[in-house]
């Protein structure tokens, strides 16, 4: 394969990684029945804190930990407001979206546009030598490898373990799960915070690797909304969510490539609109039932498997409150 093409795919995987981590985090939260709408702001604030912590301490690891704590704390606020005080999760999430973005601008104002620590590539010895796939997937940073582990780890947890079954149950039928002995609200706290911490990790993946440093306006602004849409596109299934994130990063790379092609005369400004048009199109694909229609064309034995994979209903109890006695 053409080495240039390999480079492009390598950078698509790298650029998709924050989106992958954030949407996996949100998938966990929403599977438990809680909406963390604050993603766009959470990513920005955790990116800023991650960068500043890494800059001050000189260690990227400390930056990552700080960013995860920030993401977890924001999620904790949503959990307290939404679960304990039974307020509207969307309202709290929206307020936090704006608040955290402003907080990042305010608290990070003395740390803009300065170089700081970065997470460097660390190729995995034997795997990186596999033709084509090796240099694309295994010549990356440790965060990218971690994202692979998260994808398969979440799939295994959700569909192959008992606690994973409980996680799905509290998002689908909290009453039934409660009757069977699950402590619904405590588990929702737990998964909301874990999901939020992963969103924080994604923030650090921006400021310490993909878009290193901190600047206002933040370079990752808008990606939180994209990640939320990817979770819907992905039907709350880890594999499809990841597919969505990679697809999205791929199309974004394509539009950058078009910008660099002198033969195609199109306004750079208008190309910036592509991600948003894509976001609406993907949501339309899910909501219009086009996927269901596609299923009927497939041979019968494949239908059941594909239907399970392409399931696009949200967790039935998503965003609702559960009164635990």
């Amino acid at each position: 394969m053409n080495p240039e093409l390999i480079n492009i795919f390598n950078s698509i995987v790298a650029n998709a990684t924050p989106l992958v981590i954030a949407s996996i985090g949100e998938t966990i939260t929403e599977r438990a029945g809680v909406v963390n709408l604050s993603l766009d702001g959470s990513l920005i604030l955790s990116a800023m804190v991650g960068f500043v912590a890494a800059f001050v301490s000189g260690s990227a690891i400390i930056g990552i930990i700080a960013a995860m704590i920030v993401g977890g704390l924001i999620a904790l606020i949503i959990a307290i407001g939404g679960i304990e005080l039974r307020q509207d999760q969307v309202a709290i999430g929206f307020v936090l979206t704006l608040l955290t973005a402003d907080l990042a601008t305010f608290l990070g104002q003395n740390y803009t546009r300065i170089p700081g620590p970065q997470i460097l590539r660390s190729p995995i010895p034997i795997l990186a030598d596999i033709p084509v796939a090796g240099p694309i997937f295994f010549n990356q940073t440790a965060l990218v490898y971690l994202s692979y582990a998260l994808i398969f780890g979440l799939w295994y947890w959700l569909f192959r373990t008992r606690p994973g079954l409980a996680l799905r149950a509290i998002g689908e039928r909290p009453e039934t799960a409660f009757a069977r002995g699950a402590n619904v609200n405590r588990l929702r706290y737990l998964y909301t915070i874990i999901g939020g911490a992963l969103v924080g990790l994604a923030g650090a993946a921006y400021s310490l690797s993909v878009k290193p440093g901190w600047a206002t306006p933040p370079s990752m602004a808008g990606d939180g909304w994209i990640a939320l849409a990817i979770v819907i596109f992905g039907g709350w299934h880890p594999f499809r969510v990841v597919l969505g994130a990679y697809l999205f990063a791929g199309l974004r790379a394509l539009s950058t490539a078009i910008q660099r092609t002198p033969e195609i005369e199109i306004s750079v400004v208008l190309l910036n609109g592509i991600p948003w048009v894509l976001m609406i199109i993907t949501l339309l694909l899910v909501s219009s039932g086009a996927i269901e229609r596609l299923l009927t064309v497939l041979p019968r034995p494949l239908q059941k498997w594909t239907r399970n994979f392409l399931r696009s209903d949200p967790p039935a109890a998503l965003g609702t409150r559960f009164k635990q006695k």
Binding site: G81, L98, L99
Partner: peptide, 27 residues
């Protein structure tokens, strides 16, 4: 030499605090 985003910070915390106190009141 302070960023004007401070206004958004104050307003954001205010609304968040009001939502929380509504929740406390209901409970």
């Amino acid at each position: 030499q302070l960023d004007a985003s401070l206004a958004g910070v104050l307003q954001g915390f205010l609304v968040l605090a009001v939502l929380f106190s509504n929740g406390l009141r209901e409970r």
